[in-house]
């Protein structure tokens, strides 16, 4: 067996990928929004997939992309949308000493692992040229369906169990009869008929007013000029990304207040396009 030669191309690719991956991973520690973290993690997963292919494991590399980038990280994104989207977390530590323990622990682990890895006397690298003689997937398949067939069958059971488990865990027993669109509309109309509010009977107000500022973060105004909270998407409001009248130029607000017509003039028109571009 000839010792493995690592090509320069591989080295270059490694040194390009590794810093990107570490940077992506560091988002776990420093990014505030879970969505950002999930996306950077997906990037790390892709980097890992490329590395697997570099490491003569093309099957695993593809599986990594399919399983991790394609399935796991997307699942994370779904859950973030479902549960964590409005929970951007403050990075202030609440448990006393936890951060110190974490930092010291991480440094200790890092030093230990790197020291072990670098100080260890490793045998000369062999490479997988021989093992991958019949292409890598065939080699892996021989092992999986040979030596590891029993473990493989067990993973099937594990996956089925996991699927059923997820169903059971996220299942909620219905305690009241289901209220569909029809029932909801009827209930709203009945309430309105008894003198209740008109909310829900008429379509909800859409965001964006003032003709020249119709972005989704701007609440609609009712006839009396009071902002309608429900016209802005909840997520934006929760995240504090809602715009207020004060964010606009005071001149226009004054004009609205005095009831001047809002017919656009020529000169401000360019201004409007500018704002919209923003």
């Amino acid at each position: 067996m000839s010792p493995l030669e690592i090509s320069t191309g591989e080295a270059v690719l490694f040194w390009v990928l590794a810093p990107l991956m570490v940077a992506g991973a560091l988002s776990l520690l420093f990014a505030k929004r879970p969505v950002h973290i999930a996306v950077s993690m997906a990037g790390v997963m892709i980097g890992l997939a490329i590395m697997y292919i570099m490491l003569e494991a093309p099957f695993l590399g593809v599986a990594q992309i399919v399983v991790y980038t394609g399935a796991v990280m997307m699942l994370f994104l779904f859950v973030i949308m479902l549960a964590g989207v409005d929970s951007s977390e403050s990075l202030v530590e609440t448990i006393k000493g936890q951060r110190w323990i974490a930092v010291v622990g991480m440094l200790g682990l890092l030093v230990l692992v790197i020291a072990v890895v670098t100080r260890a006397t490793l045998p000369p690298a062999v490479g997988l040229a021989e093992a991958n003689a019949d292409t890598n997937p065939v080699g892996v398949a021989r092992l999986i369906f040979g030596d590891y067939i029993f473990a493989f069958e067990l993973t099937a059971a594990l996956l089925i169990t996991a699927a059923v488990g997820a169903l059971v865990l996220s299942h909620r027993r219905r305690l009241s009869p289901k209220i569909g669109q029809k029932e909801l509309a009827e209930a709203k109309l009945a309430a309105y008929g008894k003198g209740g509010s008109a909310e829900g009977v008429t379509p909800p107000a859409g965001p964006g007013v003032y003709a020249r500022h119709n972005s989704a973060d701007m609440p609609a105004l009712d006839a009396a000029g009071i902002p309608i909270d429900s016209s802005v998407v909840t997520v934006l409001r929760v995240r504090g990304q809602e715009a207020e009248a004060a964010d606009l130029d005071s001149d226009r607000v004054a004009r609205i207040a005095t009831g001047e017509p809002m017919v656009p003039e020529i000169a401000p028109a360019t201004e409007t396009t500018k704002e919209n571009e923003e």
Binding site: A25, L28, A102, M106, L107
Partner: peptide
């Protein structure tokens, strides 16, 4: 090793 350490500190913090 670096990735592992970053993962572990993320779990902790």
């Amino acid at each position: 090793g670096i990735l592992f350490s970053i993962g572990s500190i993320a779990v902790l913090t």
